[in-house]
């Protein structure tokens, strides 16, 4: 049975564009006629600089803005993986960046106090690093494993095929495709509306963002076509 109620957690370092993913997801759900609630950075995970976006999407009224388990958990740095593992339950779809390059660099240590006042879409443009490293491994939460683990080398794809700044749009494409929480076309619409002013100024941004979104989507589709979705 298709899930009627989704709890989504996206977490990462300041500058990775985590909040924009949350905003676009929630607003897309609203556009698709669903109830949605998005709240930025209201979890203990933010302690020490992890930025967290919490989104709920449902067909009926939504309760508290906070929740304890995530149906889609998207930690985008090693610290975020550690700090968000308590959201894992046995039906979680776990999406992470398994690039073999350094995760995005943190420069904003004070997210908890002022960083979350403003969600700045332009702030993540230089976020993706280049140093080689071991890819992170999804942790286990007290013996509970996620139902489906989706590793996507979004940092590498962004750097090699597109631009570092659209790293988060690749992730967004992967989230939407893996979970099927919303049609990708609605997300595209929201993205274009959201970046409206900027897109008019820089036409290439439109193309770049849409390609990133599609790249994340096709990666998930192709990678799991053979194996089938869990």
């Amino acid at each position: 049975m298709r899930r009627q109620y989704w709890r989504i957690v996206v977490a990462g370092e300041g500058g990775q564009g985590v909040q924009l993913i949350g905003e676009i997801l929630a607003e897309s759900a609203y556009r698709a006629g669903k109830e949605a609630l998005y709240i930025p950075n209201f979890g203990v995970e933010q302690r020490g600089g992890v930025s967290i976006a919490m989104v709920q999407i449902a067909n009926g009224p939504i309760a508290a803005p906070k929740f304890e388990k995530a149906d889609v958990l998207v930690p985008l740095s090693r610290r975020a993986m550690e700090r968000t593992k308590r959201y894992i339950h046995s039906d979680t779809i776990y999406i992470y960046d398994n690039s073999d390059i350094e995760p995005p660099h943190v420069w904003d240590e004070v997210i908890g106090i002022y960083g979350w006042d403003t969600v700045a879409p332009e702030a993540f443009s230089l976020a993706v690093g280049t140093e080689p490293q071991e890819p992170g491994r999804p942790p286990v939460n007290e013996g509970v494993r996620p139902r489906w683990i989706v590793g996507i080398p979004a940092s590498s794809i962004a750097r090699e095929e597109l631009k570092p700044r659209v790293f988060n749009m690749i992730i967004l494409g992967a989230i939407v495709t893996a979970s099927r929480v919303l049609p990708l076309s609605v997300v595209e619409e929201t993205l274009l509306a959201k970046l409206g002013d900027k897109l008019q100024q820089y036409l290439e941004l439109r193309e770049l963002n849409l390609r990133a979104l599609a790249r994340g989507a096709t990666f998930v589709q192709e990678r799991w076509q053979g194996e089938g979705r869990p």
Binding site: A26, E35, Y38, I39
Partner: peptide, 10 residues
């Protein structure tokens, strides 16, 4: 409260 101030919903 801060939640209601900052959260988005319809």
């Amino acid at each position: 409260d801060g939640y209601q101030a900052k959260m988005r919903e319809a």
